[in-house]
């Protein structure tokens, strides 16, 4: 069952210019994806690919210019305000830097329980559920009366997770949740995320620039490039041949083994979006067709989609 769906969504921002309007920046160009119940969908791509904008749309923080955002089967932005407000708590977010997203003047206990208080849950129940939640994310009871700056980065991310899950949401969008953490702490948080996903039966959209991390966690992976999804596949399929040339470049770029790699430029600016296939200027297999025509996201096997003329 699908819990969240984006259908052909586009999003542009007008850049601020001096005395006149700046150019328009198309950050997302007709992106579709769906998230199933109990699923972890990984979203991977380099900076500027639009993955964080996609996160904001999936969190209903922003409205798409075009396309539809469906949450629990309902067209979110066409619902009356009151219904939207009721749906909101069922969508939660965890961002990269918990120091920036947690109010520094609130105590940990209040931060975690705030969503419950907003829902008017009784004081005793709030306390019980907060303590239980803290135990589940591995925070000691003493942390209750501390402030965010008194905790380590890993502990703060545990607070952000507890706060996101305490209302038993349907979907949690995780935007680079472990990118600021050290390796040993990252492993703790990744395993905690898996554990919590099992316990709560929640669905995740997990966004990261780090392909090995995404592949460790996700059931399905969407690869983004310049505001488009170029490949969507079950995580296990990314270990097989026949992938989108950009996915192949990402995989080959993972450091660790000294092997010669194709040098393939840098992602172009969104202001100079290539015509045809967005990846063709860097693609080793590009043909004239790739410069003229944009390849559609085509099904190559049951759950595997690729946007490439050459596959």
């Amino acid at each position: 069952m699908t819990v969240l769906e984006l259908r052909e969504v586009s999003k542009s921002y007008r850049l601020r210019g001096f005395l006149r309007q700046g150019p328009e920046l198309q950050v997302l160009a007709g992106v579709s994806l769906s998230l199933r119940r109990h699923e972890i969908l990984g979203l991977v791509g380099e900076s500027g690919c639009g993955k964080s904008t996609l996160a904001r749309l999936a969190l209903a923080l922003e409205k798409p210019d075009q396309g539809e955002f469906l949450f629990l089967g309902q067209p979110y932005w066409r619902l009356p305000r009151r219904e939207r407000r009721n749906l909101r708590p069922r969508l939660q977010a965890v961002f990269q830097d918990p120091a920036a997203s947690l109010n520094p003047r609130m105590r940990i206990g209040d931060l975690i329980s705030e969503p419950l208080r907003l829902q008017g849950v009784s004081r005793e129940e709030t306390r019980d559920r907060t303590l239980k939640m803290m135990e589940m994310v591995g925070l000691p009871e003493e942390a209750l009366s501390r402030f965010p700056h008194q905790l380590s980065g890993g502990q703060r991310q545990r607070v952000a997770l507890a706060r996101a899950l305490i209302t038993h949401p349907e979907v949690v969008v995780l935007d680079e949740p472990t990118s600021a953490l050290d390796v040993s702490v990252q492993a703790q948080i990744l395993n905690l995320l898996l554990d919590l996903q099992h316990r709560f039966g929640v669905s995740y959209i997990f966004i990261s620039h780090d392909l090995p991390v995404v592949l460790y966690l996700a059931h399905r992976v969407a690869v983004m490039y310049l505001g488009e999804i170029v490949e969507m596949a079950p995580a296990a399929d990314l270990e097989k041949p026949g992938l989108h040339p950009y996915t192949e470049l990402l995989l080959a770029s993972i450091p660790g083994e000294r092997k010669k790699r194709p040098v393939a430029g840098e992602p172009p600016s969104l202001l100079r979006r290539p015509y045809g296939c967005v990846f063709h200027p860097r693609c080793p297999e590009a043909r004239p067709l790739c410069q003229r025509e944009k390849p559609p996201l085509r099904r190559v096997s049951r759950e595997h989609f690729i946007a490439c003329h050459r596959r």
């Binding site: 380590s152 890993g154 050290d182 390796v183 040993s184 702490v185 990252q186 492993a187 703790q188 990744l190 395993n191 780090d210 392909l211 090995p212 991390v213 592949l215 460790y216 270990e239 995989l251 993972i254 660790g256």
Partner: peptide, 22 residues
Amino acid sequence: RALLAAFPRLGTRKLEVLPGQV
């Protein structure tokens, strides 16, 4: 050894967690 076991690589099925912090 703990650091290497906590580091995700392609094909990692299980990350070993090293408790605590530096």
